[in-house]
């Protein structure tokens, strides 16, 4: 029984949160990797674009709530999501038109794009704070749990419980659907193929008549979808705070680089690697070990490798290790 209890505690505090967080990171990292593959720069405005999309979703959620529209047991934010994605597409395309297109025409160095994205980040960040303020917002509603600790205990008769929140289930299901759709799009459709061709070899793609501006436009549209979904799911799961979204930039970049920049499969793998390392390293293992080990070996301390304040240090250390030993990432992404 004890070993089962240990597994349940492990699932409750490590596996479920890590899978959820990993899905969110994977969606974010897919966006970074796509921008890198097509537009060939690291987009520092990524976290704040996420915040922009989520902001629209929050505003619409409030509107729907005030109108009495709800999605039953699911969060109202899901109804707002399509509109938020549309708004984010507009934001990103307008930004591209006003900022990035000029440098694309000039064939500027990648680092100039990075710097411009820094300016965009500032502006987005300012806009979000201007509208919603710098504070925390929770916008989850509907049913809180798919299965709560008490139900689980009653169901199984175990002394430890496993809770799965609606937002966690929702995150994983949505991520699977989105990733499947993305891979279908990239692998099967004409537009998807032209995007991959453009990413692989720009000159050849241009020669075969692919319109680069269209490819770039589709990229921004897909990225807008990915980051709005990632941002809303993250906000539902935890909470929305502009600064947190800016800070997500580091784990998201780390995920994309660990997997190999430019490789969509790598971005997903990287997201889960970062999420699992972060959660396992900052989790206090005492309860799991107390169940799993014989009584006389039970630990007296918390058995926490690093305090949760250092979770960014974990993604950073992984990033450093990858850069030192395998700078192209696990899936051998591009290295320019």
């Amino acid at each position: 029984m004890d070993i089962l209890n240990a597994l349940i505690v492990l699932a409750n505090f490590v596996l479920v949160p890590a899978i959820t967080y990993g899905s969110q990171l994977a969606l974010g990292a897919l966006g970074v990797t796509m921008i890198y593959g097509i537009l060939r720069f690291s987009n520092f405005a990524h976290g704040d674009s996420m915040a922009m999309g989520t902001m629209v979703a929050i505003l619409l959620t409030w509107l729907f709530q005030s109108m009495g529209i709800s999605a039953g047991p699911l969060p109202t934010a899901l109804l707002a999501l399509p509109f938020a994605i549309a708004a984010t597409i507009v934001f990103l395309l307008v930004t591209d038109r006003l900022v990035y297109r000029f440098y694309r025409r000039q064939k500027a160095k990648p680092i100039i794009f990075v710097m411009a994205s820094l300016g965009v980040m500032f502006v987005y960040n300012g806009l979000v704070r201007f509208v919603l303020g710098p504070d925390d917002h929770r916008f989850t509603d509907g049913e809180r749990f798919i299965i709560s600790v008490r139900d689980f205990k009653a169901l199984t008769g175990m002394s430890e419980g496993l809770a799965i929140r609606t937002t966690q289930g929702l995150t994983v299901i949505t991520a699977v659907i989105v990733v499947a759709a993305l891979f279908w799009f990239l692998g099967r459709t004409r537009t998807g193929k032209s995007m991959r061709a453009y990413s692989d070899n720009e000159d050849l793609a241009l020669l075969s008549g692919i319109n680069p501006e269209r490819v770039v436009m589709y990229t921004w549209m897909i990225v807008a979808g990915l980051i709005t979904i990632a941002g809303v799911l993250y906000g539902l799961d935890k909470s929305f705070k502009p600064f947190t979204y800016f800070q997500l930039l580091l784990p998201i970049f780390a995920s994309a680089i660990v997997g190999g920049l430019g490789s969509p499969l790598g971005a997903i793998a990287g997201g889960f690697i970062i999420a699992f390392s972060e959660v396992t390293i900052t989790y206090a293992w005492k309860r799991v070990l107390t169940y799993a080990l014989p009584d006389d070996l039970a630990p007296s301390g918390l058995v926490q490798l690093l305090s949760t304040d250092y979770k960014f240090a974990v993604s950073f250390m992984i990033l450093v290790i990858v850069l030192l030993f395998r700078p192209t990432g696990i899936f051998r992404g591009k290295s320019v």
């Binding site: 160095k109 990648p110 970049f253 680089i257 304040d309 990033l319 850069l323 030192l324 320019v336």
Partner: peptide, 28 residues
């Protein structure tokens, strides 16, 4: 030592990381 000699963006990302960590150390 870690990030130079690789792509130019990597230095940017690595410095972004070290800055967050220095602040985390000072705070904790």
């Amino acid at each position: 030592k870690t990030a130079l000699g690789l792509r130019s963006d990597y230095l940017a990302i690595a410095t972004l990381g070290i800055a967050e960590i220095v602040i985390a150390v000072l705070k904790n």
